[in-house]
Simulated assay, not measured.
Amino acid sequence: MTETGTYSGWFDCGVNLFSQQFAGQEQQIWQRAQHAGVNNMLLIGSDIAESRQNQQFCSGHSGCYTTAGVHPHQAANVAAEWLEQLRQLLSLPTVVAVGECGLDFNRDFSPRPVQQHIFASQLQLAIQLQIPVYLHERDAFTTQLAMLKEQQVNHGVAHCFTGDTSQLKAYLDLGLYVGVTGWICDERRGQSLQQAIHYLPLDRMLLETDAPYLLPRTIKPRPKNNEPALLPAIAAEICRLKSISSQQLADITTENAHRLFSLSGLQA
């Protein structure tokens, strides 16, 4: 924080930095983010290997943190010792959340019972270690909500939320934060989210690009990929919908990230 008590930039709480689309460009993407005022990034781990790769990058880059976990797409591919490997990763200082974990009944790359087993194991580990969960959900809201309630999960974020007002309120009732991406900028698919965001309190909101995906449609001309440096474009649409200033949004969403991920004792 600065001497005035405000944060000096943006916090992108969702970056797939080691996606194939970014291969070999990781350093430049980080530098462009810094130049755009995006001083903090949370990298997303989709499996144990990527989580390790993220952690190694974060250890050498100030203001970078990562999740560690198994995405539902990867649930059927875990090694026998995956849970212990995950536990070890979660003990490292820049690893701040369990995930990306959850259910995806849209593509079903892993059988649904396997998804649910791997998800439940991660929820139990997060509760045991008192670490927030970083949640993925697609076409599985009812089942996922039931599992979160069964495990009494109240500490985490609904990553890349694209649902409607009733789903938003259900996550808020659990005590979760909600991650808003460039979906909010989509005049075709984002209408439900644009309506729901009026019910999202500022103190429960996180900002994400989900780079390289979900390039905001408000950006013209359109670059090839989304990246953290474009987070201010997402913020501009939220500021318009919520009638707030960009400084206010930057401060409160960065503060939210620090609170949720317990970053006060880490390099920011």
Score class of each variant (00 low, 15 high):
A235M: 06
H159C: 07
H61K: 10
R32S: 08
Q20T: 13
E26K: 03
Q34C: 11
N225V: 10
N226H: 04
Q21V: 04
F261W: 08
I234L: 12
R240G: 07
P93M: 04
Q267G: 12
R188S: 13
L176C: 09
S192D: 13
A120W: 10
Q88M: 13
P228N: 09
D12K: 02
G190I: 00
W10K: 06
L83T: 05
Q194I: 05
R87N: 13
D139Q: 15
A196Y: 05
N16S: 01
A250T: 03
N225L: 05
Q144W: 03
Q34R: 13
G182L: 03
S91R: 15
Q53M: 12
A229H: 09
A146F: 08
M41P: 01
R112S: 13
A120G: 11
Q128H: 14
V95N: 00
G190V: 00
E187S: 15
K149M: 13
H71T: 11
Q122C: 03
L83K: 06
G9M: 03
Y213W: 13
R188D: 14
T181K: 08
A76F: 04
L215Q: 04
S110C: 09
K242C: 09
Q167Y: 04
L249G: 05
N40V: 13
L145A: 14
L172G: 02
A79P: 02
S51N: 03
N16M: 02
P221V: 01
A75L: 06
Q122W: 01
R107Q: 14
Q53K: 13
A140E: 01
A146C: 12
Q116E: 15
A196H: 01
V15D: 02
L103D: 07
S245Y: 04
E100Q: 11
L215T: 02
W183D: 09
A36N: 08
T181E: 07
A236R: 12
T66G: 00
A235E: 02
A170C: 10
Q88K: 14
E187T: 12
L231I: 03
G163V: 02
F109H: 13
Y171R: 11
D210Q: 06
L174Q: 06
V98T: 08
S264Q: 15
S91W: 11
V153K: 02
P228A: 01
T254M: 12
P212V: 00
R138E: 06
C185T: 09
A23C: 11
T209V: 07
Q116D: 10
H159P: 04
P216M: 06
G175E: 11
A23W: 14
L215P: 01
G5K: 12
Q267F: 10
F11S: 11
F141H: 11
A140W: 02
T2C: 14
A170M: 05
G163Q: 12
N39S: 12
G179D: 07
